[in-house]
Design a binder for these strands. Structure first.
Lengths: 251, 251
DNA sequence: CGTTAGTTTGACGGCACTCAAAAGTTGTGG
DNA sequence: CCACAACTTTTGAGTGCCGTCAAACTAACG
């Protein structure tokens, strides 16, 4: 006990700093854990260096081997329906988790592709299974994440036009990126127009037109992947679906 | 112990029959449970009589008090975005569960409305929480249900035209209703055109036109809520998004 | 500097939405 | 039992948004 307590005081703080903004933090640092357990938990998290864009973390039907936390970069998850075409399911930004598409039936339902060089934390599945037996709160936390993700996703597809979806998307990404950058309303999109459009259920050309119109209306500044939100209030109203807004603002 | 064992032999079989087709069955009858635990579990499930259509089981922001299993009837869950209009989230048919929209943050995110007189089983939340501490498999089961539901939902909204969505919906409902009826391909829709259209993200008039065309093409027989699937193979192809099919079949 | 991939812009057509009315169904009271 | 009202569903006509096809433009890389 003395030994563990000893090492914990030197070891834990290092990670506590690095994990501060991560969705895993409640996962890695459940308040009721003892110092001994904390170290047990953090010794199993493998931290990767920068992984190159273009590679896959896992593919559909792969066995559930681990959960991933994004430290830097961006991962997209997508499914390929058997007609061949892909559907982007979501994007995972720094501080966010992925891999839970395999909680049941312990095989991944989605593909996960690195679309920007990314550094990750990897938590092996067998450790998660083992830990969640010891800590019911861990399972609750996972369910909470899944539930929130579920509801957030639906917001994008619920009946709305291309302008509204685009506004929702830009506000959402800005909000999620801001946790790691002080600069407000100014950011680089980590993903291509094609991927965004696919995610939003519209075509890339339509997205491009919408962005152009938002720019003409001085609601945003957009040049390729650099985005600056100029009029968040109006964007919010558009995102909230006040149909008169999207038309009034753009004419 | 003698007393519990005594009553269990007379008590449990009654429910085992009634629950055979219910999603709760794995929930209510986890194989590793002792006879004592089985009775403990089943004594807390309250079985209601027929509840009248039009009433709500719960509304958004209500506290998470229970999980419901549908024995007969139909429940729709929907959200109301603050613009006022509703979005039907899903339908819950006999043998299916609802209420998990409140797993986090322990308040319901959706409204649940009885749209057909329904008989339910009610499992109080505090019992679920208590039980899932004792039986990790229960939490796993709940996660599995949520995950499957999540994926099933997405299939409907992923980019597709009104005809495809309608075909998917009819096949899905038929499949879910068939568990309780021997008659194949012939059923009564428990919900209105309006609700279906809203769920599918299209307008009621569009849905009506699509159904008319499917009927003209001899793929279905439809009169109000009575539906008979005539050509499941073609419907499947349409539902799978082979775009040439939906057009070829209907012209 | 040339090639390539990603993005933007234009012209056109179709599917689904809107508005509107008719037809069919259900429920109520006379 | 019938008549009427209220509602759901179906059908029609016209419009607009978005998808398709195609070309121009920009940025990035060797």
């Amino acid at each position: 006990m003395g030994l563990y307590a000893e090492s914990s005081t030197t070891f834990a703080p290092v990670f506590r700093r690095a994990c501060g903004l991560c969705s895993l933090s409640e996962f890695c640092w459940p308040p009721e854990l003892s110092v001994y357990d904390l170290n047990r938990l953090h010794l199993i998290v493998r931290r990767t260096g920068s992984l190159p864009a273009g590679h896959h973390l896992y593919r559909t039907h792969d066995r559930f081997t681990a959960v991933y936390a994004v430290r830097t970069g961006c991962i997209k998850t997508y499914s390929a329906d058997f007609s061949g075409d892909e559907h982007v399911h979501g994007f995972h930004l720094p501080g966010e988790l992925l891999g839970f598409d395999a909680v049941y039936p312990e095989r991944h339902r989605l593909n996960a592709m690195i679309i920007q060089d990314s550094a990750l934390c990897i938590v092996p599945y067998h450790n998660i299974a083992e830990l969640s037996r010891d800590y019911p709160r861990l399972q609750q936390r996972i369910m909470a994440l899944m539930s929130s993700e579920f509801m957030r996703q639906r917001a994008f597809v619920d009946g709305s036009d291309a302008t509204r979806r685009t506004a929702m998307f830009l506000l959402d990404i800005e909000h999620r990126l801001r946790r790691h950058k002080d600069i407000e309303y100014d950011f680089l999109l980590p993903m291509s127009r094609e991927d965004i459009a696919n995610f939003l259920g519209i075509k890339a050309e339509t997205l491009s037109r919408v962005i152009s119109r938002l720019q003409q209306a001085n609601l945003i500044n957009a040049s390729r992947r650099r985005i600056r939100l100029l009029d968040v209030a109006k964007l919010d109203r558009i995102a909230q679906g006040m149909s008169q807004c999207s038309k009034a603002a753009l004419n």
